Simulated assay, not measured.
Amino acid sequence: MPSPTMTLSISCPDQRGLVAKLAQFVYRYNGNIIHADHHTDAVAGIFLSRLEWELDGFGIPREQIGATFINYAQREKLFASWQGVRWQLRASDVPYRLAIWVSRQEHCLWDLILRQRAGDLPAEIPLILSNHEQMRPIAEQFGIDFHYIPVTPDTKPMAEAKQLQLLNDYKIDLVILAKYMQVLSPQFLEQFSQVINIHHSFLPAFAGANPYHRAHERGVKIIGATAHYATADLDEGPIIEQAVVPVSHRDTVADLIRKGKDLERIVLARAVRLHLQNRVLVYGNRTAVFT
């Protein structure tokens, strides 16, 4: 097993000396930085940074790193103001807990479970949730708890209350909408915002329903898939990962759907892995992805 690491992710208003002061914090306590990525959006005036260092030999107990960093930032005037500063610490040996939400299409569900079982996704999957019963055998096959919560326009508020309670009960860090064909309400996302969705289109083209049929009608020469964070605006959340594949006039709608499903598996898995590695920083409706 690799040695555990700590990752510090920060987005804040840009100013001089941030890279040096962040590196100095790690060095001051005998930390060995193994990855350092930084980006400045000059138009937005935003600085984004991801620092990862080894915990072995680091001079601060991990449970005290957060408080020590706050004291250091205040003492060294790391930020001109804490307004607009977002930061997170995450240890590599503390696995994320995932909830996979799915409706009737199972291809992304199978792919995520098998990748997790193979060790490609460093996370735990204690919960599968669906608005249909037919995915229960897959969950039972892998010993994962399955919860069926039907959703109708009239029962949606009650259903989302049950969903939020389950996320709390299972201590879920991230929800993955693996072809979950329901729109989450703004009220839900206000209470739980860590949600990744896979959309079967290269957004912003063909947002909404039936993109492969619409792409076929339009005669496009490429189709794509997009993984993004869910927001109150349908299919307009910050984009994490995208990919495309060429198609031709000979391809039927069924061909597009088959090729699209392959892309959806790959794009969703890549996006989830990037999130689990703390490589995605969101600012506004954009992302910086440190690969």
Rank of each mutant, 00 (worst) to 15 (best):
V102S: 00
S103T: 11
S103L: 08
E106G: 01
E106C: 02
C108Y: 10
C108R: 13
L112W: 00
I113N: 03
I113T: 04
L114A: 06
Q116T: 05
D120G: 00
L121Q: 03
P122G: 01
P122Y: 02
P122M: 08
A123M: 07
A123S: 13
A123R: 03
I125W: 11
I125Y: 06
P126S: 14
L127F: 06
L129N: 02
S130V: 15
S130C: 13
N131Y: 10
H132M: 09
E133Q: 14
M135C: 10
M135Q: 13
M135A: 14
R136A: 15
R136Q: 15
I138Q: 00
A139S: 04
F142I: 05
G143S: 11
I144V: 02
F146P: 04
H147E: 15
H147W: 03
Y148N: 03
Y148V: 07
I149D: 08
P150M: 05
P150I: 08
D154M: 12
K156G: 05
P157N: 07
P157I: 01
M158T: 05
Q165V: 03
L166Y: 15
L166C: 09
D169S: 08
D169M: 04
D169K: 12
K171A: 14
I172T: 11
L174E: 12
I176G: 04
A178S: 11
A178V: 06
K179A: 10
K179N: 14
K179Q: 10
M181C: 09
V183W: 04
P186A: 07
P186W: 08
P186D: 07
E190W: 01
E190L: 14
E190N: 12
E190G: 09
Q191I: 06
F192H: 03
F192Y: 12
S193P: 04
S193W: 01
I196L: 09
I198P: 07
H199K: 11
H200L: 11
H200S: 09
F202Y: 15
F202N: 08
L203I: 06
P204N: 02
F206W: 10
F206P: 01
A207G: 11
A207F: 07
A207L: 03
G208A: 02
G208L: 06
G208D: 00
A209N: 08
A209P: 01
N210A: 13
Y212G: 06
Y212M: 09
Y212S: 02
R214Y: 00
A215W: 07
A215V: 02
E217L: 10
R218T: 08
V220T: 10
K221I: 11
K221Y: 02
K221P: 01
I223S: 05
I223L: 05
T226V: 12
A227T: 11
A227R: 02
A227H: 05
H228A: 09
Y229C: 11
T231K: 03
T231N: 01
